[in-house]
């Protein structure tokens, strides 16, 4: 019961925040609403009993990504002037609607498991087993790590040229 109330508060807040991100003229405030949106999504993870995911969401999306975003905004010269109106507004809207349609249709048609028992393992232990056990995702994980490292080194190499 309390979880339902929490879910609806969080859901409405996150949609309002997401709308504010794209509607607001003030870029800095839009970024703050993006943080609110990330935070409410983390709250929804908590109501789904995925505490580890929620903590990682806060740590990475708010603690790193949103902070870097705001950092970039602070370096922007005319940030106070507001969001410049783009010429790509129409195509972007079409693409967004198409993407939303695909996501909704796939979410509705997917055969979700319902009424299952709660897993015995905590989500942290389960994730660890899944990622690092022998028949888990060790190889993709390592490949992703190496690719990220390569991307970081590549960015540094490109900047060094000048």
């Amino acid at each position: 019961m309390a979880v339902d109330v929490a879910f609806w508060i969080l859901a409405v807040l996150s949609v309002v925040a997401a709308l504010a991100v794209i509607m607001l003229r003030d870029v800095f405030r839009a970024a703050l609403f993006l943080i609110l949106c990330f935070f409410t999504v983390a709250g929804i993870y908590v109501t789904l009993n995925a505490g580890f995911l929620a903590a990682v969401q806060v740590l990475i999306y708010i603690g790193a990504i949103a902070i870097l975003l705001i950092f970039a905004i602070m370096f922007t010269r005319d940030a106070q002037a507001g969001n410049p109106s783009g010429r790509l507004r129409l195509p972007a809207g079409v693409a967004a609607v198409v993407l939303l349609g695909v996501m909704i249709s796939s979410a509705v048609t997917y055969g979700w498991l319902e009424g299952g028992e709660m897993s015995e393992m905590t989500s942290t232990g389960g994730l660890g087993q899944l990622l690092f056990s022998e028949n888990g995702f060790v190889l993709p994980l390592e490949i992703a790590g190496v690719m990220l490292l390569a991307a970081a080194l590549g960015a540094i190499a490109i900047m060094r040229e000048k």
């Binding site: 903590a55 740590l59 603690g63």
Partner: peptide
């Protein structure tokens, strides 16, 4: 809380906002 210390790290990152 089974993610205790991770929670601490995540929450203390909020202050910078």
């Amino acid at each position: 809380l089974n993610i205790g210390i991770l929670y601490v790290v995540a929450v203390s990152a909020l202050g910078v906002v």
